[in-house]
């Protein structure tokens, strides 16, 4: 891993990093990856990953939830006529 990798990850994760933060992140990431790399040596060839995944169904009935529209709108950074206002995307 090098500084270019950190820059690429930061871009993917949408986090702006200063030059110093990049250097620090690189050093920390190297330490952590060195540690978790031990997983390469674990032999679990006979084990298939099992996900406990089941469908959770419920009746298609309207249940009134205790949400506060005012509180939600109050959190918007920018609001117009009760709608969230965002910058143009394209």
């Amino acid at each position: 891993m090098d500084i270019k990798d950190v820059e690429n990850l930061a871009k993917l994760a949408r986090i702006e990093l200063s030059e110093e933060e990049k250097r620090e992140t690189l050093s920390d990431m190297k330490d952590i990856l060195d540690y978790v790399k031990q997983i390469e040596n674990v032999r679990v060839d006979d084990i298939k990953t099992e996900y406990d995944i089941t469908n959770v169904w419920r009746e298609d009935e309207i249940e009134i939830q205790d949400f506060s529209k005012e509180l939600i709108i109050g959190q918007f950074p920018d609001v117009q006529n009760g709608f969230l206002k965002v910058k143009k995307i394209l």
Binding site: D5, R14, I15, E16, L17, T25, D28, M29
Partner: peptide, 26 residues
């Protein structure tokens, strides 16, 4: 919009949180 994301995350998240986000992304 992209700059909004980049700057908001940079000022909102502390060091360990950023570290884990980047590690997870990796």
């Amino acid at each position: 919009l992209l700059e909004d994301y980049m700057l908001s995350k940079a000022s909102g998240f502390g060091k360990e949180v950023r570290r884990r986000i980047l590690l997870g992304t990796y």
